[in-house]
Deep mutational scan, measured.
Amino acid sequence: ATNIVGKVKWYNSTKNAGFIEQDNGGKDVFVHKSAVDAAGLHSLEEGQDVIFDLEEKQGKAYAVNLRIK
Rank of each mutant, 00 (worst) to 15 (best):
F30Y: 11
W10S: 06
K60Y: 11
A17R: 12
R67E: 04
F30P: 06
G40K: 07
W10H: 05
G59Y: 04
L54K: 06
K7N: 04
S43G: 13
I20S: 01
K57Y: 13
D28N: 09
L54D: 00
I68N: 05
G40E: 05
K33Q: 11
E46F: 11
S34P: 04
V50P: 00
G18E: 00
G59E: 06
H32L: 08
K33E: 04
A39L: 07
K15S: 09
G59P: 01
S34R: 10
H42M: 12
G40M: 07
N16Y: 09
G6D: 00
L44W: 02
S13H: 13
G18Q: 01
Y62T: 09
D53L: 02
V64I: 11
R67D: 03
G47Y: 04
K33D: 02
Q22R: 14
E21D: 05
L66H: 01
L44G: 01
R67T: 05
N16C: 12
N3G: 10
T2D: 06
K7L: 04
D53R: 02
F19K: 07
K69Q: 12
F30W: 07
Q58W: 14
F19L: 11
S13T: 12
I4V: 12
T2I: 13
I20Q: 01
D37C: 14
D37P: 01
D37I: 15
I20Y: 00
R67Q: 09
D49E: 15
T2M: 11
K15Y: 13
D53S: 04
A35G: 03
G59H: 05
V8P: 00
K33Y: 08
L44A: 01
L66C: 02
V29N: 00
N3F: 05
T14D: 11
I20A: 01
A1T: 13
L66T: 01
V29G: 01
D37M: 14
I51G: 02
V29E: 00
D49N: 13
E56Y: 15
A38G: 06
L54I: 15
S34W: 11
Q48I: 09
V36Q: 02
L66W: 00
D49Y: 15
G47L: 03
R67H: 06
I4G: 03
D28I: 11
G47E: 03
K15E: 08
G18A: 03
D23G: 14
V8N: 01
D37H: 14
N65A: 03
V29H: 03
Q58M: 13
A17G: 15
W10C: 10
G59K: 06
G18N: 01
Q22A: 10
G18I: 04
I68P: 07
L44K: 00
S13P: 14
L54T: 05
A38V: 07
Q22I: 13
E56V: 15
L44R: 00
L54Y: 06
A38D: 08
I68A: 07
I4N: 06
V8Y: 02
E46H: 14
N3W: 05
D23W: 12
S13V: 13
G59C: 07
K60F: 11
Y62S: 09
K9N: 02
D37N: 14
D37T: 14
V50S: 00
I4A: 06
I51D: 02
E45Q: 13
K57T: 10
E55M: 14
V64N: 04
Q22Y: 15
A35T: 09
V5N: 13
V29C: 03
L66Y: 00
G25V: 06
K60V: 09
F19N: 03
D49Q: 15
I51L: 10
E56H: 13
Q48K: 05
G59M: 05
L41E: 04
D23C: 15
G25K: 07
F19M: 12
N24M: 10
K15D: 07
G47F: 04
F52T: 01
I51Y: 08
F19A: 07
N24H: 10
T2A: 10
A39F: 02
G40F: 06
A39K: 03
V64D: 03
T2K: 14
N16Q: 14
V5A: 14
V64Q: 04
D28Y: 10
A17S: 14
H42R: 12
Q48T: 10
G59I: 01
E45I: 14
K27R: 12
Q48P: 00
A35Q: 09
L44P: 01
G40D: 06
G26S: 09
V50E: 00
W10M: 05
L41G: 03
N24D: 09
D28F: 09
L44N: 00
L41F: 10
V64T: 10
Q22W: 12
D28L: 14
V5L: 13
V8A: 01
V50A: 02
L66N: 00
H42P: 11
N65P: 00
N65W: 02
Q48C: 08
A61F: 15
L44S: 01
N65V: 02
A61N: 11
D28W: 13
R67N: 04
G26A: 09
T14L: 13
R67K: 09
G6S: 01
F19G: 03
G6C: 01
F30G: 02
Q58C: 14
Y11W: 13
A1P: 10
V36K: 02
T2L: 13
Y62Q: 11
K7D: 00
A63S: 02
A1D: 09
A63L: 05
G18T: 02
T2E: 08
K33G: 11
V64P: 02
A63N: 02
K15C: 12
V5W: 11
G47W: 04
A61K: 14
A35S: 09
K57P: 03
A35D: 05
F52P: 00
N12G: 03
S34E: 08
S34D: 09
V8D: 01
H32D: 10
E56M: 14
H32N: 10
N12V: 06
N24G: 12
K7W: 08
K27Q: 11
K7S: 05
G6L: 02
I68D: 05
K69Y: 12
Y62L: 07
A38C: 09
D49A: 15
N16T: 06
F30C: 07
H32Q: 07
V5H: 15
I20M: 03
E46A: 15
I4P: 01
V5F: 13
Y62R: 09
S43Q: 11
K60N: 08
V29Q: 01
T14Q: 13
G26T: 07
D53P: 00
I68F: 09
G40R: 07
N3R: 07
I68C: 07
A1E: 10
V5E: 12
K33M: 06
K57A: 10
K57R: 13
S13E: 11
D53M: 03
E56D: 08
G59Q: 05
A61R: 14
N24V: 07
Q48G: 04
S34Y: 08
A38P: 02
N24L: 09
V31D: 00
K27G: 11
A17T: 10
H32P: 07
A38I: 08
F30K: 04
E45H: 15
N24P: 07
I68W: 05
K15Q: 10
T14S: 13
V64W: 05
Q48H: 05
A1W: 11
K7Y: 05
D37E: 14
E21N: 08
V31G: 01
N16A: 13
Q58S: 13
K7G: 01
G25D: 07
G47I: 02
D28P: 10
E21R: 14
L66G: 00
V5Y: 12
Y62M: 10
I68K: 05
Q48W: 14
Q22D: 05
